[in-house]
Nucleic acid binder design. Structure first.
Length: 458
RNA sequence: GGCGAAGUGGCCGAGUGGCUAGGCAGAGGUCUGCAAAACCUCGUACAGCGGUUCGAGUCCGCUCUUCGCCUCCA
């Protein structure tokens, strides 16, 4: 499986998170089903132009001059930043994360092959793919009528191209261009589309099973990938295409060029990464997701509720009741097998949560066996597959170490005093203890089994 | 202009012909000394207008609105 990775000239934003969290669940689910997945996700560290008409600036170089550093420093710094953010979101690292700059020879090899086969031509140190030589072009996006495209399109006719639809495989480096390599056509740099073909085929073979990416890349990027790859090999390039939808803000796409994006680092100051992940998975990968703080806050409340249930399950004393866990397993599997329907899978987990609480409310409770099955279910699906469950350690202890132990001791004393006050119906004292603790962020709950306490998040 | 997606109850968000999505918020109730939590009950949601059908949020047509791609973008 190959997924188009980020161009590393800025911090990742919520749009990146939606894409990579979605594909992360695809990988996790396929692995759960027993498939051995080799997940390749490129890093685009060659700055491509802000414009496809042979003009515009190199985005990475632009950022580099802004920050007064070498372009490669930009690429490396933002690559690190990207993986930092993804790690926090619980996105598993790809098996291979190849960089475009590390695969220049492979890209040149494809270009040479395309020229050899008559699908590409050189012109003034630039090499272009001749779209007319590949009749299948446009089939993925339904844009097959090149003549209509050209007449209505906004692409300026440039002298070097034979046809406006043709796209660059290799560009001549103009004076002042920093990231450049020697090639049979002179010093230059690769076009954007060719890197994905080169790296996908190098690590996954000439025909790959799944290729993912953002919807906005369907045309022209993926169309161009197909054209290059299939023209070069004569074989089908991709068996299944998966396109994930956009994150919108007030109904408008969140994008770097629009400047309306919110970076993950900013978002993480207000919300836990796992809440963001949960928020994303509550909608389908093919649906657009509208961003608002209110919506994420609602997700936060919901996720906390789920964690509370699991915490309760972990603390529960063994009883004799039963629960049909297998039915929930089945429904969850069904949802994920239906085009990775994470929102439905989550709804099943919430139904489970409700059933769980209901069972624990009953006097007979849950048998050790049923509780074990329930834990296994929630840890497998909410935990390993969806990645929206905290670890047992995080759920129970929260913190460890000497200060936590001291706190637990102190709390024990306070709860004992409060219990005595309640026993003699001195509710003024017991309420004072509860209110004073709450003001310091510690919440008490009186249950049948005694009083529990937990730290509330600010 | 071309291609495509979408409009679901206060909010987010599933669902493609008949059966409860789910979450958040809200109302009532059970429990509790009171809270909190949990559980139970509730809201007669499918942009509009026609049509197909025994039956449509779900299919067809038209209208309105929004958005994406057609230039880099997950």
């Amino acid at each position: 499986m190959y997924v188009c990775g980020p161009t590393v000239y800025g911090h990742a934003h919520l749009g990146h998170a939606k894409s990579y969290v979605s594909f992360d669940v695809v990988v996790r689910w396929l692995r759960h089903l027993g498939y051995k997945v080799r997940y390749v996700q490129n890093i685009t560290d060659v700055g491509h132009l802000t414009d496809d008409a042979d003009e515009g600036e190199d985005k990475i170089q632009k950022q580099a001059s802004k920050e007064m550093v070498d372009p490669m420093e930009i690429a490396q710094a933002y690559t690190r930043s990207y993986f930092e953010d993804m790690d926090r979101l619980g996105v598993l690292r790809p098996n291979i994360a190849p960089t475009a700059t590390g695969h220049i020879p492979e890209q040149i090899a494809i270009i040479e092959k395309l020229i050899e086969k008559g699908h590409a031509y050189e012109s003034n140190g630039n090499v272009y793919f001749e779209v007319e030589s590949f009749p299948e072009y446009g089939r993925l996006s339904g844009r097959t009528d090149q003549a209509a495209l050209q007449s209505g399109g906004r692409v300026e006719q440039r002298s070097d191209k034979r046809s406006p639809s043709d796209f660059a495989l290799w560009k001549r480096a103009e004076a002042g261009h920093i990231m450049k390599w020697a090639s049979p056509w002179g010093v230059g740099y690769p076009g954007w589309h060719v890197e994905c073909s080169a790296m996908a085929m190098k690590y996954l073979g000439e025909t790959i099973d799944i290729h993912g990416g953002g919807m906005e890349n369907k045309f022209p990027h993926h169309e161009c990938e197909i054209a290059q790859s299939e023209a070069a090999t004569g074989k089908p390039f991709v068996r299944f295409w998966m396109h994930n939808n956009m994150v919108t803000v007030d109904g408008t796409k969140m994008g770097k060029s629009l400047g309306n994006f919110i970076t993950l680092k900013e978002l993480f100051t207000s919300f836990e990464p796992m809440v963001i992940r949960f928020f994303i998975l509550q909608s389908h990968y093919r649906s657009p997701l509208d961003f608002s703080k209110a919506a994420i806050s609602a997700s936060q409340a919901g996720l906390e509720k789920l964690h509370e249930t699991v915490r309760r399950l972990l603390d529960a004393k063994p009883g004799s009741g039963t629960l049909d866990v297998a039915a929930f397993v089945h429904k969850t599997e069904e949802a994920l097998n239906d085009d990775f329907n994470t929102p439905v899978a989550i709804s099943v987990i919430f139904e489970f949560s409700k059933a769980m609480n209901g069972a624990l409310d009953r006097p007979e409770g849950l048998s050790a066996e049923a509780a074990g099955e329930a834990m296994a279910y929630v840890e497998e699906f909410a935990g390993r597959v969806l990645g929206i469950l905290k670890s047992r350690e995080e759920l129970t202890a929260g913190e460890s170490g000497e200060s936590a132990e001291t706190l637990a001791d102190v709390m024990g004393v306070l709860l004992e005093l409060r219990k005595e006050a309640r026993a003699r119906k001195d509710f003024a004292t017991s309420d004072a203890i509860r209110d004073l603790l709450l003001a310091r962020g510690i919440e008490l709950k009186d249950t049948k089994e005694g009083t529990t306490w937990s730290k509330k998040k600010g």
